[in-house]
Protein backbone atom coordinates (compact mmCIF):
# COMPACT_ATOMS: atom_id res chain seq x y z
CA UNK A 1 0.00 0.00 0.00
CA UNK A 2 2.33 2.78 -1.17
CA UNK A 3 -0.15 5.64 -0.67
CA UNK A 4 -0.25 4.77 3.05
CA UNK A 5 3.52 5.18 3.19
CA UNK A 6 3.19 8.60 1.56
CA UNK A 7 0.52 9.57 4.11
CA UNK A 8 2.79 8.34 6.90
CA UNK A 9 5.70 10.48 5.64
CA UNK A 10 3.45 13.55 5.38
CA UNK A 11 2.13 13.07 8.91
CA UNK A 12 5.63 12.55 10.31
CA UNK A 13 6.72 15.81 8.69
CA UNK A 14 3.78 17.54 10.40
CA UNK A 15 5.27 16.56 13.76
CA UNK A 16 3.19 13.52 14.70
CA UNK A 17 4.90 10.77 16.72
CA UNK A 18 5.24 7.27 15.20
CA UNK A 19 2.52 5.87 17.49
CA UNK A 20 0.14 8.68 16.49
CA UNK A 21 0.97 8.14 12.81
CA UNK A 22 0.31 4.43 12.93
CA UNK A 23 -3.06 5.06 14.65
CA UNK A 24 -4.07 7.63 12.05
CA UNK A 25 -2.72 5.92 8.94
CA UNK A 26 -3.67 2.30 9.71
CA UNK A 27 -6.75 1.23 7.78
CA UNK A 28 -9.90 0.36 9.75
CA UNK A 29 -10.73 -3.28 10.48
CA UNK A 30 -13.54 -3.34 7.91
CA UNK A 31 -11.12 -2.33 5.16
CA UNK A 32 -8.68 -5.06 6.24
CA UNK A 33 -11.52 -7.60 6.25
CA UNK A 34 -12.39 -6.62 2.67
CA UNK A 35 -8.74 -6.97 1.66
CA UNK A 36 -8.45 -10.35 3.41
CA UNK A 37 -11.58 -11.56 1.63
CA UNK A 38 -9.99 -10.48 -1.65
CA UNK A 39 -7.05 -12.78 -0.86
CA UNK A 40 -4.63 -10.39 0.84
CA UNK A 41 -2.89 -12.56 3.48
CA UNK A 42 -1.05 -9.50 4.81
CA UNK A 43 -4.37 -7.88 5.69
CA UNK A 44 -5.41 -10.88 7.77
CA UNK A 45 -1.98 -10.91 9.45
CA UNK A 46 -2.54 -7.23 10.33
CA UNK A 47 -5.97 -8.07 11.80
CA UNK A 48 -4.36 -10.88 13.81
CA UNK A 49 -1.62 -8.64 15.08
CA UNK A 50 -4.16 -5.95 16.01
CA UNK A 51 -6.48 -8.22 18.02
CA UNK A 52 -4.29 -11.05 19.30
CA UNK A 53 -3.68 -9.46 22.72
CA UNK A 54 -7.40 -9.26 23.42
CA UNK A 55 -7.95 -12.87 22.32
CA UNK A 56 -4.95 -14.13 24.33
CA UNK A 57 -6.12 -12.17 27.37
CA UNK A 58 -9.55 -13.83 27.40
CA UNK A 59 -8.27 -17.30 26.45
CA UNK A 60 -5.60 -17.20 29.19
CA UNK A 61 -8.39 -17.10 31.79
CA UNK A 62 -9.52 -20.55 30.61
CA UNK A 63 -6.40 -22.31 29.28
CA UNK A 64 -4.74 -24.89 31.49
CA UNK A 65 -1.25 -24.30 30.10
CA UNK A 66 0.72 -22.55 27.39
CA UNK A 67 0.11 -25.25 24.78
CA UNK A 68 -3.65 -25.09 25.28
CA UNK A 69 -3.57 -21.29 25.14
CA UNK A 70 -1.78 -21.45 21.77
CA UNK A 71 -4.27 -24.04 20.48
CA UNK A 72 -7.30 -21.99 21.52
CA UNK A 73 -5.93 -18.80 19.96
CA UNK A 74 -4.95 -20.55 16.73
CA UNK A 75 -8.41 -22.15 16.50
CA UNK A 76 -10.03 -18.74 17.01
CA UNK A 77 -8.11 -17.08 14.20
CA UNK A 78 -8.44 -20.09 11.88
CA UNK A 79 -12.21 -20.04 12.32
CA UNK A 80 -12.21 -16.28 11.80
CA UNK A 81 -10.20 -16.73 8.59
CA UNK A 82 -12.45 -19.40 7.10
CA UNK A 83 -15.70 -17.74 8.22
CA UNK A 84 -14.71 -14.18 7.41
CA UNK A 85 -17.55 -13.97 4.87
CA UNK A 86 -20.02 -14.50 7.71
CA UNK A 87 -18.82 -11.36 9.50
CA UNK A 88 -21.60 -8.79 9.20
CA UNK A 89 -20.46 -5.22 9.50
CA UNK A 90 -23.22 -4.32 12.00
CA UNK A 91 -20.83 -4.67 14.96
CA UNK A 92 -17.08 -4.08 15.39
CA UNK A 93 -14.76 -6.84 14.18
CA UNK A 94 -13.40 -7.27 17.71
CA UNK A 95 -16.87 -8.17 19.06
CA UNK A 96 -17.25 -10.84 16.38
CA UNK A 97 -13.78 -12.19 17.18
CA UNK A 98 -14.48 -12.26 20.92
CA UNK A 99 -17.69 -14.18 20.27
CA UNK A 100 -15.61 -16.83 18.47
CA UNK A 101 -13.09 -16.75 21.34
CA UNK A 102 -15.82 -17.29 23.94
CA UNK A 103 -17.24 -20.25 22.01
CA UNK A 104 -13.79 -21.78 21.55
CA UNK A 105 -12.98 -21.42 25.25
CA UNK A 106 -16.29 -23.06 26.10
CA UNK A 107 -15.55 -25.89 23.64
CA UNK A 108 -12.16 -26.45 25.30
CA UNK A 109 -13.74 -26.49 28.78
CA UNK A 110 -16.29 -29.06 27.61
CA UNK A 111 -13.64 -31.14 25.86
CA UNK A 112 -11.54 -31.15 29.02
CA UNK A 113 -14.55 -32.22 31.08
CA UNK A 114 -15.50 -34.93 28.55
CA UNK A 115 -12.02 -36.39 28.42
CA UNK A 116 -11.86 -36.20 32.18
CA UNK A 117 -8.43 -34.72 31.92
CA UNK A 118 -8.78 -33.16 35.30
CA UNK A 119 -5.17 -33.59 36.30
CA UNK A 120 -4.18 -31.84 39.49
CA UNK A 121 -1.28 -29.45 39.38
CA UNK A 122 0.60 -31.55 41.93
CA UNK A 123 0.37 -34.72 39.86
CA UNK A 124 1.46 -32.81 36.74
CA UNK A 125 4.51 -31.47 38.54
CA UNK A 126 5.31 -34.92 39.93
CA UNK A 127 5.21 -36.37 36.42
CA UNK A 128 7.78 -33.81 35.28
CA UNK A 129 5.30 -31.56 33.46
CA UNK A 130 6.53 -28.04 32.91
CA UNK A 131 4.21 -25.37 31.59
CA UNK A 132 5.38 -23.95 28.27
CA UNK A 133 3.93 -20.51 28.80
CA UNK A 134 2.62 -18.40 31.66
CA UNK A 135 0.00 -20.17 33.71
CA UNK A 136 -2.78 -18.03 35.13
CA UNK A 137 -0.52 -16.08 37.43
CA UNK A 138 -1.28 -16.86 41.05
CA UNK A 139 1.33 -15.09 43.11
CA UNK A 140 -1.14 -14.80 45.95
CA UNK A 141 -2.01 -17.99 47.91
CA UNK A 142 -5.71 -17.01 47.99
CA UNK A 143 -5.70 -16.72 44.21
CA UNK A 144 -4.46 -20.28 43.94
CA UNK A 145 -7.49 -21.33 45.98
CA UNK A 146 -9.77 -19.33 43.70
CA UNK A 147 -8.28 -20.82 40.50
CA UNK A 148 -8.49 -24.33 41.94
CA UNK A 149 -12.16 -23.79 42.82
CA UNK A 150 -12.88 -22.28 39.39
CA UNK A 151 -11.36 -25.38 37.77
CA UNK A 152 -13.94 -27.52 39.57
CA UNK A 153 -16.96 -25.64 38.21
CA UNK A 154 -18.95 -26.91 35.24
CA UNK A 155 -17.97 -25.38 31.86
CA UNK A 156 -21.07 -23.14 31.76
CA UNK A 157 -20.55 -21.94 35.34
CA UNK A 158 -16.87 -21.29 34.79
CA UNK A 159 -17.52 -19.41 31.57
CA UNK A 160 -20.15 -17.13 33.03
CA UNK A 161 -18.34 -16.38 36.31
CA UNK A 162 -15.05 -15.71 34.51
CA UNK A 163 -16.64 -13.33 32.02
CA UNK A 164 -18.70 -11.58 34.68
CA UNK A 165 -16.23 -11.29 37.55
CA UNK A 166 -12.75 -11.54 36.04
CA UNK A 167 -13.36 -9.95 32.62
CA UNK A 168 -15.92 -7.52 34.07
CA UNK A 169 -18.41 -8.06 31.25
CA UNK A 170 -22.01 -6.96 31.71
CA UNK A 171 -24.91 -9.43 31.59
CA UNK A 172 -25.92 -8.10 28.16
CA UNK A 173 -22.38 -8.46 26.83
CA UNK A 174 -22.18 -12.05 28.12
CA UNK A 175 -25.57 -12.79 26.54
CA UNK A 176 -24.25 -11.49 23.23
CA UNK A 177 -20.97 -13.39 23.50
CA UNK A 178 -22.50 -16.71 24.50
CA UNK A 179 -25.82 -16.56 22.69
CA UNK A 180 -27.72 -17.21 25.95
CA UNK A 181 -30.62 -15.02 27.04
CA UNK A 182 -29.85 -12.32 29.66
CA UNK A 183 -32.14 -14.11 32.14
CA UNK A 184 -30.23 -17.33 31.54
CA UNK A 185 -26.93 -15.54 32.11
CA UNK A 186 -28.19 -14.14 35.42
CA UNK A 187 -29.43 -17.54 36.63
CA UNK A 188 -26.20 -19.27 35.62
CA UNK A 189 -24.10 -16.55 37.24
CA UNK A 190 -26.07 -16.88 40.46
CA UNK A 191 -25.64 -20.67 40.50
CA UNK A 192 -21.96 -20.39 39.59
CA UNK A 193 -21.35 -18.00 42.44
CA UNK A 194 -23.16 -20.28 44.87
CA UNK A 195 -21.13 -23.30 43.69
CA UNK A 196 -17.92 -21.34 43.94
CA UNK A 197 -18.80 -20.17 47.45
CA UNK A 198 -19.43 -23.78 48.53
CA UNK A 199 -16.14 -24.93 47.00
CA UNK A 200 -14.25 -22.12 48.69
CA UNK A 201 -15.82 -22.90 52.06
CA UNK A 202 -14.79 -26.57 51.74
CA UNK A 203 -11.15 -25.64 51.33
Amino acid sequence: MPHHQDDRADLTLLGYTNAMVSTISSPPDEQLVEAALAGDHGAFAELTSRHKSRVFGVAARFAQNGAELEDICQDVFIQAYFKLRQYRRDSPFEHWLLRITTHKCYDYLRKRQRIGAHVSTDSMLESGYEPAAPEPAAPHPHLERLYAALAQLSPKERLVITLLELEERSVMEIAELTGWSPANVKVRAFRARASLRKLMEKR
Binding site: P134, A138, L166
Partner: peptide, 9 residues
Protein backbone atom coordinates in the same frame (compact mmCIF):
# COMPACT_ATOMS: atom_id res chain seq x y z
CA UNK B 1 -7.39 -9.42 43.30
CA UNK B 2 -7.64 -11.78 40.32
CA UNK B 3 -8.59 -8.88 38.04
CA UNK B 4 -5.41 -7.05 38.97
CA UNK B 5 -3.32 -10.17 38.21
CA UNK B 6 -3.89 -10.58 34.50
CA UNK B 7 -1.92 -13.51 33.06
CA UNK B 8 1.10 -12.25 31.13
CA UNK B 9 0.71 -13.61 27.61
Amino acid sequence: LARTHRPDT
